[in-house]
């Protein structure tokens, strides 16, 4: 009589041996060409050397380069910037999106402007942001907030717009007022879509963090990339890229686990 329960969100995928083939091949070729000396180390360090820099960047054990042991300082600075910009995007984008999805007046008011601004590529804002906000901190946070805003807004709007009328009717009939309908029905019903938007926004935040930090700040992983490139430490450039990826993955994990605390059941849409 009982149906099998199934969660909407799932953790890791099953391990698939097929997915290993390409990374293994790349690693083998990489190892071979650096071993034989086909590619000089200043263009492409060997996997072993890179591994050592990965550890040294974090621990400072070998003092391989000027960045040895400074990872945590840069990670902290970069993470705060992402959090700052992402939070701004959420604070503005989430409520505005939810309202725009439900209220004709709001969507008629804001949608045309938002679509207009959205058609400008995020990177295109960089020069203007540098003029207006100065090189560095503010520009970076601005770029992150701007980039993360759109997916958050659009998904929240779509999620709240697609809340089935039957749920709202049921809520009204059960005595919910307009405000309650919003908090107890529109929000939970739109939650899966909201999460999708937040994840996209957070991913973009890291991308735009790098863009902002490339343009002349002293600290942060993006700054390390640019700086070490000039000093000829290709290995540090690559290691920074790696750590950015890890941070992006970790932050996504944190976001998803926050949402796991809330029930994400959507069930089947009612007729």
């Amino acid at each position: 009589m009982l149906r099998q329960s199934h969660h909407i969100t799932r953790w890791g995928n099953k391990f698939d041996i097929l997915g290993i083939i390409i990374p293994a091949a790349v690693l083998t070729i990489w190892y071979s060409v650096t071993r034989v000396g086909l590619v000089p180390a200043y263009l492409l360090p060997s996997p072993a050397q890179l591994g050592q820099v990965v550890l040294d960047f974090a621990t400072g054990t070998w003092h391989l380069n000027p960045y040895s042991g400074t990872l945590w300082a840069h990670v902290t600075v970069s993470s705060i910037r992402v959090l700052h910009g992402f939070a701004l995007a959420v604070i503005v984008g989430l409520p505005l999106g939810l309202l725009s999805g439900r209220m004709k007046l709001v969507s008629r008011l804001v949608d045309p402007s938002i679509n207009l601004i959205r058609s400008i590529p995020g990177i295109g804002w960089l020069p203007l942001a540098m003029v207006w906000l100065g090189v560095g901190e503010n520009t970076t946070v601005f770029l992150i907030a701007l980039a993360a805003f759109f997916p958050i807004f659009i998904n929240a709007a779509q999620g709240s717009r697609n809340v089935p009328d039957t749920y709202l009717r049921a809520g009204e009939m059960l005595g919910a007022n307009k405000f309650s309908l919003f908090t107890t029905i529109v929000f939970p019903a739109a939650l899966p879509s909201i999460l999708a938007g937040l994840r996209l926004g957070l991913g973009l935040s890291w991308a735009y963090l790098v863009l902002g930090e490339l343009t002349g700040v002293n600290q942060g992983l993006g700054a390390v990339m640019m700086d070490s490139r000039m000093l000829g430490h290709v290995d540090v450039v690559m290691v920074s890229m790696l750590y950015i990826a890890v941070l992006g993955w970790l932050s996504d994990l944190v976001l998803r686990s926050l949402f796991r605390l809330a029930p994400m059941r959507t069930g089947g849409a009612p007729q």
């Binding site: 039957t166 009717r169 029905i185 939970p188 019903a189 029930p263 059941r265 959507t266 069930g267 009612p270």
Partner: peptide
């Protein structure tokens, strides 16, 4: 309603 329209969350 015809379908129960319970809140799935």
């Amino acid at each position: 309603f015809q379908s129960a329209v319970l809140f799935p969350w």
